[in-house]
Design a protein around this nucleic acid. Sequence first.
DNA 1: GGGTATTTGATACAAAGTATCATTAAAGGG
DNA 2: CCCTTTAATGATACTTTGTATCAAATACCC
Lengths: 159, 159
Amino acid sequence: MAKAHKTIQPPGLERALDRLEHLCRAHGQRLTRQRRAVLSSLLSAGRALSAYELLERLRPEDGKSTPASVYRSLDFLMTLGVVHRLESTRSFIACEHPEAPHWVQFLICRRCGQVVEAEDERIAAATERLGQRLGFALDQRVVELTGVCEGCRENAARH
Amino acid sequence: MAKAHKTIQPPGLERALDRLEHLCRAHGQRLTRQRRAVLSSLLSAGRALSAYELLERLRPEDGKSTPASVYRSLDFLMTLGVVHRLESTRSFIACEHPEAPHWVQFLICRRCGQVVEAEDERIAAATERLGQRLGFALDQRVVELTGVCEGCRENAARH
DNA sequence: GGGTATTTGATACAAAGTATCATTAAAGGG
DNA sequence: CCCTTTAATGATACTTTGTATCAAATACCC
């Protein structure tokens, strides 16, 4: 039996889109149809998508999406903190902790592609400390830990 | 006055290439002209290079390098641990701690491009712990901290 | 509903990375 | 030193990922 994806369905999706609207107002930014569609699509995918996978998923609804416009929407959503980019897989994922604008870490299963978003205080503190020790004023922290998740290891164990 | 780059000159370069030779023997791998040239080029650049920048630098010496072959050499050198890839800048850099095959972190100055390779025990421990807590058997850890280095902040301060 | 600044669409392109297969060369043994 | 074997490279073409530009459309405020 296939692993259940944590696809966000309404009303979770509704709530997230409401939150997006409030964030836009708060930042004096415009909430456009495409921006809503991009976040919505990422949320209902329930996993990380490449920009072009996302584009594929938008096309049925909105045939005139282009790479440039998808990237623009993604950039926008990233500045609001509701979407993150995974550097090591060149993909994008909806944020699971949108209330807390803290530094996050990602755990990525190289087998099933599952991505877990974490907010580990020790790692946050340790990276900050390292930055200070080496004289860096940090403004971006990429922490992406790749391996095999528990479920996949169990599956592998029973062949 | 411009910041001095830590370009590796002979005999540092010689030492690194000797080390590469020993590593290849130890792993039963072939040491080819291109592999030597790629590491050498990265070392004397003294900074991170994209695969295509590297290609440019190889061409004068070896006009028949191609993207594919450069990527192959880079992959090879990465498996030996003498080169690292920076995911957040899509570039490659020679390893500064080639003796210790530990997990490393990178601090990247977004102003001058300087990259500092660190080996922080706290971060290593904290990431390992997080992986265990969430059930991941980790085999790759990308920790890339971007900000502004001390030198660049000082320069900016005096306009 | 109309005015305006922002966003999008369209097009074209740049940068990064990979697949395939014939040819070349590294390393070990004679 | 040459020969052989196996691995790596060269050549070619292609895929994926990301951007620049500018005219047309639309979200938001009044």
